[in-house]
Write a protein that binds this DNA or RNA. Structure first.
Lengths: 238, 238
DNA sequence: CGGCAGTTTGATGTTACTCAATTTAAGTGG
DNA sequence: CCACTTAAATTGAGTAACATCAAACTGCCG
């Protein structure tokens, strides 16, 4: 599980929270912050940050805001692979690949940090704790991918949406203190639809259903969980 | 892409083909074959080889036959995460995790090789080429998972099945020479159904459809591709 | 010959999609 | 703060895709 801590590598850290284990390990190995092998930028909401098949010398971390990783199909369909929260690497495997196999967009205004891949790899060799942290990220991503696959293959619409919400809630709670079951929630229904393989219309109906049954309410970018046990009953696989 | 080569670490190698890069790298580092940190066994078709949450000191490779990785839900539903072919690690990340986050079953009679995790890790430290090979496996698995996710989230039944077949065909062809577009194919329709999130009844209908349209024929454990361009038109997500 | 596992086929039901209209919310500029 | 504009969410009606249930068929093996 991830712990709450301010962003250590990002110069914009006063504006948000990062602090994954991977990031901490990298920082540990580096004497000076804001070294010249890192760069940072702020991107507006909706802006595409990375494109499939694009070559990059950098490994990216989302330092602030939300983003998402996705595949775009030629006919316009889009699959959102996962959502990126502060502290997340775009993908753990991108430390070893110079080409993105996915695209990334900013969901809100976001802070993105890039680190030279060869520098990251050099630190990997020098410090086995970084390698271990990276291996853990890989394993966590792989397990999350397997769970998403199960959700899309086996779950009904209600189950998929409940599952997505619970998964996001756990990740948000690991990064900031949650009071009264109110979670920041910048997703549009279109994002949910593209993540769980439904249409926006159907997502809206399920949300209405949940609202009417007193399970959750979404408004003003805030997700309020009214009946957590019921949400878990619907959405927890195992 | 993987190359055709006999299984190097497995004592049963005359009975099948393995030869992933990862395996070759491991062998490279080891003077004697059949070292005492490896063990091998033959498991009958249908036998469960690994169970979710189970702890193991070993890292497993499928040396011969076919297997599959899956999640079992309490209500009986099952999601097949991927199929294992000779030479495949059960999962690349299992080199770092002592607990399976998935279950594995033998699809045909299969040969399984287990290697002490600490021995594998020791070789990882000693030989950077092994680490690189493992990183490549991780990246390949992650990309495959993202593609499967897209297939389940966005594709119609026809597209999903065509996609699965093409994906398997490429992997089989990387391990053995294919003549006349005839591929060994030990899957039951139930396996396909559980892999692509459909019912067996619907899988059967799609197969009939493909057969009637002269695209593929499956019989006697052999998949014959009659019209490859058409199959690719349906199933390639690019 | 009987039994079993796997596949095929038909009839019917349900879930989720499509299309279209309407309402609500979120900005924007005056 | 209010009219205006635009994006997002909601609702209804009709439809397509896939599931469910049940029966029949096939090949295989004892």
């Amino acid at each position: 599980m991830q712990t709450v801590s301010p962003c250590v590598t990002c110069p914009h850290r006063d504006q948000g929270f990062c602090g994954t284990l991977m990031e901490k390990r990298l920082e540990e190995s580096s004497a000076q912050q804001r070294a010249n092998w890192q760069h940072h930028r702020i991107v507006p909401a909706g802006k595409q940050i990375a494109t499939r098949n694009e070559v990059s010398e950098d490994v990216f971390v989302l330092c602030g805001g939300w983003g998402f990783r996705f595949f775009q199909l030629p006919d316009g369909r889009r699959q959102i692979l996962n959502f990126l929260l502060p502290g997340d690497l775009f993908a753990a495997t991108s430390v070893f690949e110079q080409r993105f196999h996915f695209s990334v967009k900013a969901l809100t205004e976001a802070q993105v940090s890039g680190m030279r891949r060869e520098e990251v790899q050099a630190r990997l060799d020098a410090n086995p704790r970084i390698l271990m942290a990276l291996a853990e990220s890989c394993a966590a991503e792989s397990e999350a991918a397997d769970k998403s696959l199960t959700a899309l293959g086996q779950y009904s619409a209600e189950e998929r949406i409940a599952h997505l919400l619970l998964h996001l809630m756990r990740r948000i709670a690991a990064r900031s203190v949650i009071r009264e079951q109110r979670y920041p929630f910048p997703l549009r229904q279109q994002h949910i639809a593209d993540a769980v393989g439904l249409t926006t219309v159907h997502v809206s109906r399920i949300f209405s259903l949940f609202r009417d049954r007193g399970i959750i309410v979404v408004s003003d970018g805030i997700l309020t969980v009214v009946n957590l046990p019921e949400l878990e009953r619907i959405g927890v696989l195992n």
